[in-house]
Design a protein around this nucleic acid. Sequence first.
DNA 1: AATATATTTTAGACTTATCTAAATTAATTT
DNA 2: AAATTAATTTAGATAAGTCTAAAATATATT
Lengths: 222, 222
Amino acid sequence: MIMKLSLTEENYIKSIYHLSADGENAVSTSAISEDIETKPASVTDMVKKLADKGILKYEKYYGVQLSNDGKSTALEIIRRHRLWEVFLVEKLGFNWDEVHDVAEQMEHIQSSLLIDRLDDFLGNPIMDPHGDPIPDKDGNIIITPQMPLSELSIGESGKVVNVPDSDPSLLRHLDKIKIKLGSVLKVIDVTEFDKSILIQIDKNHEQYLSDQIAKSLMIAKK
Amino acid sequence: MIMKLSLTEENYIKSIYHLSADGENAVSTSAISEDIETKPASVTDMVKKLADKGILKYEKYYGVQLSNDGKSTALEIIRRHRLWEVFLVEKLGFNWDEVHDVAEQMEHIQSSLLIDRLDDFLGNPIMDPHGDPIPDKDGNIIITPQMPLSELSIGESGKVVNVPDSDPSLLRHLDKIKIKLGSVLKVIDVTEFDKSILIQIDKNHEQYLSDQIAKSLMIAKK
DNA sequence: AATATATTTTAGACTTATCTAAATTAATTT
DNA sequence: AAATTAATTTAGATAAGTCTAAAATATATT
């Protein structure tokens, strides 16, 4: 059950977990290939190896699905990643657009003592700086009901509960227009032409957002 | 001058730096081989590669010597290692015998922003938990004059300023007999038979130490 | 100085993770 | 249903880092 995995193997497992909507669906070779920027042929080799290790089920020409072991391994890696992100922001003063790449490296450090102590040091946070839930020691996550901002109708409002973690330019733009986790957004208008929306931020000022941004911002409806 | 190095290359550079007494002396293939637990033939290959990169000077059948680039790279890796050790002890409550292996992993995380911020967060420490000096951003280290406890004569005393970092069992033994950095030791007697010494610790109690331990404890004479 | 021993290097092979190109299978179109 | 296109797998090659065994060099002994 407990097994040492290479950095590369861990990256595959994490990718498959995310692509499968938290381990639920089957994932194609090409999807993994695109996500981790590795050629499909290489992915085929690696998933065979991970199948042999019992991390996932692999069916030729169909796709892969994480085993229970695979899922808990993924959750462990995600836990490490998100705890380090909290550390970087809360303790070292990083901005939320600066943490992803560093946390990508730190997530591979192998020491359960380290992660347990870090968790306590940070006050056992349940969210990372982008609103993503942090799995606990046993892999439990708190799921917040949410929807993309783009799905709100005119007049509806909601609170920003999640933003994408891996796109620094988007995050810096959100800083500029003063949108952060917890911001309350109200949809004032939707432009028919390009689906851009006019929103009111925290009852203060109004701002146009492109459809692309509106699709990225996850909202808890009020 | 600035170049990306693999984890393996970094480990070679660190090893060579230590074996050469901080980059001063030439180091043999076999010494490196023994230190990093890799066969001499493999070391030969790698030092050729590092020589091509300008990290060191390699002379066949003689040995290797770090270049200035090699030395500053080594100091950067050592800086990272020791800062993480301080973090683990000061912030996460690790004992000094638990930090080496974890810091060995953390030292390879590549982000100068991270290390600068970590340095500030820790209050720009100049010593790690074992008394080893932490190089600053520019590679400067403060060297404390010191000698092994084994070289003190009867009646002389000194302060413990450094202990070996990579031997957990020694460090735990020191905990047990209440010796820590800063402890003042006075040599009461030296046994002729096995060179074990009787010391007085912090003016309180007396204790025998084997010659092996006495050689490992570095002292600043009073 | 010649021989024996120890150290170091060379040569060729192995592993992990990747690639390209060709072959196979699945999905889509006619 | 056959042909075309797209996705996936297989086969063989490459690079990094390691190994063993043999060859070369340096050091020590007689």
